[in-house]
Amino acid sequence: MTTPRPDATAAPTLTRRELLRCAAWSGLGMAASLSPLSAFSASPAARPDVIRVGVAQPATGTPPGFAGSSLAIAHARGWLEESFKPTGTRVEWFFFKGAGPAVNEALANRQLDFALQGDLPSIVARSAGLKTRLVLATGVRANIYVGVPPDSPLKTVSDLRGKRVSLFKGTNMHLPALRLLEANGLSDKDLRLLNLDTAGYLAALSTRDIDAAIGAMDILRLRDKGAVRILYSSKNQSPIYTRQSHVLVSDDFAGRYPEATQHLVKAAVEAARWASDESHREEVLRTWARAGTPYDHWKEDFDGEPLRVRLNPNFDPFLVSRPRMRSSRPIASN
């Protein structure tokens, strides 16, 4: 099976100005005022009883929620439920600690209609015959971090050769991690790579059972405790070393309920528009912080970057180019 591989030479390298231009919201045709969301009004025969939305993250906090995307804001505010309420269509949310691979299993078993997940899991699913279509982007260009014990002798990414390094395989962390290794003269086979989820790699770093972890900004928690040193961050680096996510719908649901599909996408785009407004920055970051990652870390991670760069629902040229990268070498997902 042919799956994407990092290819820094083939990937377009976008400047900060180009990223902002890609995030200019062209062609959305939305009004400035987005609240309340418009109600769903399709004929009864075209209305599903329930819409099942999967999220490739665990739900945490009080009340339970997730973070890092405009869909997380829509969930926190109940906007999708409100939009479909007049017709009796329920919106149900399902959260997956196993991230993208677990979401794929639920999609394959027809347990979900929509899903928020990363690029690699959806590509793997499509290559295996799962019929889905991407409907909007969100949570794109999310940074990755490489953490090592504070007294580690490792100084650069190239120093990871032969070391015990954790990576949550099969997720949207996988591709940018491989691109980063390749840019530093390494491949996954040059490392003693361990497949650990977020809780697993944070614990392993704390107990020094691994030499390094390639992960998300959860690593900043350990840094603040003096238990980890940041060896590398993709912040202010090329976007090819960042993580990409999107919302997709099953072909079956889209075919049976085209109006409901269109309406959910419209509501999600309206949520993205609201969440990308810089006047809402504080509210967006604090809403995400309720899901467990401290507000200060969200503020640090987004410092100097407009919200719209990561929350733009358009599939800009950078995102469109991602699936085109191919390799004769498969990427293991477990």
Results as ranks from 00 to 15, higher is better:
residue 250 S to V: 07
residue 161 R to T: 11
residue 10 A to E: 07
residue 155 K to N: 12
residue 87 T to Q: 14
residue 203 A to C: 02
residue 296 D to T: 09
residue 189 K to C: 01
residue 2 T to P: 14
residue 35 S to T: 13
residue 252 D to Y: 04
residue 135 V to Y: 00
residue 217 M to E: 10
residue 51 I to L: 13
residue 69 S to T: 14
residue 35 S to G: 06
residue 311 L to M: 12
residue 197 D to W: 01
residue 35 S to D: 15
residue 121 P to Q: 05
residue 108 A to Y: 01
residue 25 W to I: 01
residue 292 G to R: 01
residue 318 F to Y: 15
residue 87 T to D: 15
residue 144 I to W: 05
residue 253 F to W: 07
residue 244 Q to E: 15
residue 169 K to D: 01
residue 249 V to R: 06
residue 240 I to G: 05
residue 167 L to R: 11
residue 246 H to Q: 14
residue 219 I to D: 00
residue 38 S to E: 15
residue 148 V to L: 00
residue 267 A to H: 03
residue 325 M to C: 10
residue 99 A to K: 14
residue 34 L to Y: 09
residue 143 N to E: 15
residue 119 D to P: 02
residue 243 R to Y: 02
residue 114 F to I: 09
residue 314 N to A: 14
residue 98 G to P: 00
residue 126 R to L: 08
residue 185 G to C: 10
residue 56 A to P: 00
residue 311 L to I: 06
residue 304 G to I: 12
residue 95 F to C: 07
residue 251 D to Q: 06
residue 273 R to C: 12
residue 77 R to D: 04
residue 64 P to N: 05
residue 160 L to P: 02
residue 167 L to G: 10
residue 73 I to S: 05
residue 129 G to K: 05
residue 169 K to V: 00
residue 227 A to P: 00
residue 66 F to Q: 03
residue 13 T to L: 11
residue 261 T to E: 13
residue 329 R to A: 12
residue 237 Q to V: 07
